[in-house]
Design a protein around this nucleic acid. Structure first.
Length: 371
RNA sequence: GCGCCGUUGGUGAAGUGGUUAACACGCUAGUUUGUGGCACUAGUACGCAUGAGUUCGAUUCUCAUACGACGCC
């Protein structure tokens, strides 16, 4: 079946939405944060540990799994769920974002697709909208993403205009070859920070009738937060209320709040796991760097009132030690905390929307969270 | 005891008679938003064993002392 979004209510104070998303692997609640498992693994964690953090949907990446082990092997294993032992819903990113970061030459980006070199062995490859969807069909994720052009934040208006048009053509091509009846397909809105482009991109994408819609082209290198919020503001009004809305790649606590306020339902981000491997942990008062020498003698948990596995069993001093000496357990344990932190934050956000008090929640959260 | 070589930061070390003593590791701090996983950026010797001398000027040359390595009795 295709995913089905049910809008429960909209907060009286803003556009924040409370809802559920029915999938083949259970019904999940929104707003929701999705941990990222690029290569069919949330780095450093078992799927049991991911689930213990309260995860709903998790991500995997088409580009990485295409190169290794290859979509046919995943398919032979019985699909991504069986392959990676995750019995919750899985969303696959199209690979567009990765491929665009590999193709630095403008001439490598053609109407047919994107030419680039494998980051593993330099092999010249071509990823097209059709190929991306075919791979995702075989990976058998619950949600596939359209292959879009993901322009850099520095792109000018004319480039973005052409990019929007091309993304629409690519979306149509991908949709035409999408065959997996158990897999949903999402469209992606582009257009940078420009109101007219976002509106056009959203309206035209919606006309194609996808199972969900995402806002792409944000959280790029060097993009300002103002531009990101504009991209959301200018896209959301033109998306249907009965489909889920996904803001791609965003995961700073502040941005989750800004996104929810504007009507975003789901988010994904590598941030909690990436910063964890480098020793940084989210706390209610902001990020802390466990590398800092001041934590060597600190034998309290990252957060004493946190319900995650790591905070229940380990101290800052021990985690600092693990990070300092390079034990991968350190990154795993901090990842558990960081993922739980964001997921718990979303749980609290949902509670606040139920009470029409999201803006109060946001205000209170930001009054404590400093970076 | 004699001979010979050496002594540069937390560590391994490069280097020059004259602007801010290379590089690496470590350490310290920061960065990280659809992950080209385990990266990147910045800072980190007020001094080149100690003392004396040569010189306009010495970490770089000379002598002495201390410490260390090797060889010989």
């Amino acid at each position: 079946m295709k995913v089905k979004y049910n809008l429960i209510k909209v907060d009286k104070g803003c556009k924040a939405r409370l809802g559920t998303l029915e999938t083949n692997y259970g019904t999940v609640e929104t707003p929701m944060f999705m941990p990222v498992g690029t290569r069919a693994a949330v780095k450093g964690l078992t799927t049991d540990q991911v689930k213990e953090c309260g995860s709903g949907i998790i991500l995997a990446n088409t580009y990485h799994l295409w190169l290794r082990p290859g979509e046919d092997i995943v398919n032979e294993a019985g699909g991504l769920h069986k392959f990676m032992n995750y019995d919750g819903p899985i969303l696959t990113d199209s690979g567009g974002f990765q491929v665009f970061s590999l193709a630095h030459n403008k001439k490598d980006i053609t109407e047919e697709g994107v030419h680039f070199k494998s980051h593993i062995d330099g092999t010249k490859l071509l990823l097209t909208p059709e190929k991306s969807i075919e791979i995702q069909n075989k990976l058998d994720s619950d949600i596939a993403m359209s292959f879009d052009e993901c322009p850099p934040a520095s792109a000018d208006y004319d480039y973005l205009k052409n990019s929007v048009e091309r993304t629409l053509r690519w979306a149509a091509r991908g949709k035409a070859v999408h065959k997996n009846p158990n897999q949903s397909l999402f469209g992606i809105v582009q257009g940078g920070p420009h109101e007219d482009l976002r509106r056009y991109s959203a309206e035209e994408t919606v006309k194609m009738d996808f199972d969900g819609y995402s806002i792409g082209g944000v959280a790029n290198d060097g993009e300002s937060k103002e531009d990101m919020y504009k991209a959301i503001d200018y896209s959301i009004p033109y998306l249907p209320t009965d489909k889920v809305r996904y803001l791609m790649g965003v995961g700073e606590p502040v941005d989750l709040l800004e996104g929810v306020e504007r009507g975003v339902d789901i988010f994904d981000c590598v941030l909690p796991t990436r910063i964890a491997r480098h020793g940084q942990a989210f706390t209610r008062t902001g990020k802390i760097n466990l590398n800092n020498s001041k934590f060597a003698h600190d034998f309290t948990p990252i957060e004493s009132d946190c319900d995650c596995y790591t905070c229940k069993h380990y101290t800052r001093g021990y985690l600092r030690h693990l990070i300092t000496v390079g034990e991968s357990l350190g990154g795993s344990l901090i990842s558990i905390h960081n993922i739980r932190f964001l997921i718990k934050m979303m749980e609290e956000i949902r509670e606040s929307i139920k009470k029409d008090s999201f803006l109060d929640y946001k205000r209170e959260f930001l009054s404590k969270y400093k970076n």
